[in-house]
Amino acid sequence: MVLTLAVMSFIIFVLVEIMPGDAAQTVLGQSATPESLAALRESMGLDDPLYIRYGRWAGAFIHGDLGESLYMRGVQINTIFWRKVGHSVILALTALVFYVPLSLFFGVLAGVKAGKLTDSIISFFGLATMALPEFVSGIILITVFAIKIPLLPITSIIPIGETLWENLNILVLPALSITFVMFGYVSRMQRSSMITVMNSDYIRAAVLKGMPQGYVIFRHALKNALLPTITIIGMNMGWLFGGLIVVETLFGFPGLGSLTLSAIKTRDVPLLEASVLFITFIFVISTFITDMMYAFLNPRIRFKRGEV
């Protein structure tokens, strides 16, 4: 995991550094003289070899210093970065609260009713929502809930001087459009693993032991059928906490995603490095946690084989 992160950070650094366009030029603008450019490059250490700059950057990063923004001159990235991360985390948690119970419930339902009408409806809905890019479902949601029935705000911008907590209603539409995407993904997974489990020998054995249907589903099937779904939810955690660029852009939500996009557009190298690395970090961590969870919930891994 540490190795992955180290390699990743280097790749990201190189990738971002080879961006066309000169940082010094970006700072000083088109009218800068060659002398002032050279001076600035010198003071920013831009002339050092790549690996020295990487070492300097990574060293600072480990100490929690994300550097200074290029675009917003003089602003420490730390001061804006973590607030945006906080917003993204709140949005992600809201979405989780929406979609996890929903998709698990309908996934299990579709799995148990496999082949029946209920299943067809849930499966089609899941397929449709899963296929839609977030901004498309977002636009549909906006059209319905903000324009036709003006219940919720079209954008999720926090008015200056206020905090997210005073504007919780702006979370609803973004979280719903995330739910749309994840619902299809998770419920279909849950459905198929439920079907696999319900067709297994041990479920047949449990039914033919005379156990009632509900009990078989909840006690015998669910625990095994949840395992693959938990992996899916876990693997998407990274996307949920760091990759919501599209949703945040659509709603203008002040989070990590829109920050990353603006860093690209403004060629704000240090900011871009910080956010991409952070997103990757979340990805790696969430994969790691998922693996641990999986191992913990699965007795076949938790208890190594040991014969009596």
């Binding site: 992955t4 390699v7 990743m8 790749i11 990201i12 990738l15 971002v16 080879i18 961006m19 066309p20 990274g238 996307w239 760091g242 990759g243 660029i245 599209v246 990353t260 996009l261 690209i264 557009k265 871009l272 991409v276 997103i279 990757t280 990805f283 790696v284 994969t287």
Partner: peptide, 24 residues
């Protein structure tokens, strides 16, 4: 597998966005 893990650690959309942004 290790290389694939590393590439997959960046969300594909973020990866494509960063690279396309860089290329102009």
């Amino acid at each position: 597998l290790r290389i694939m893990d590393i590439v997959m650690a960046i969300p594909p959309l973020v990866l494509a966005m960063v690279v396309l942004g860089i290329l102009g």
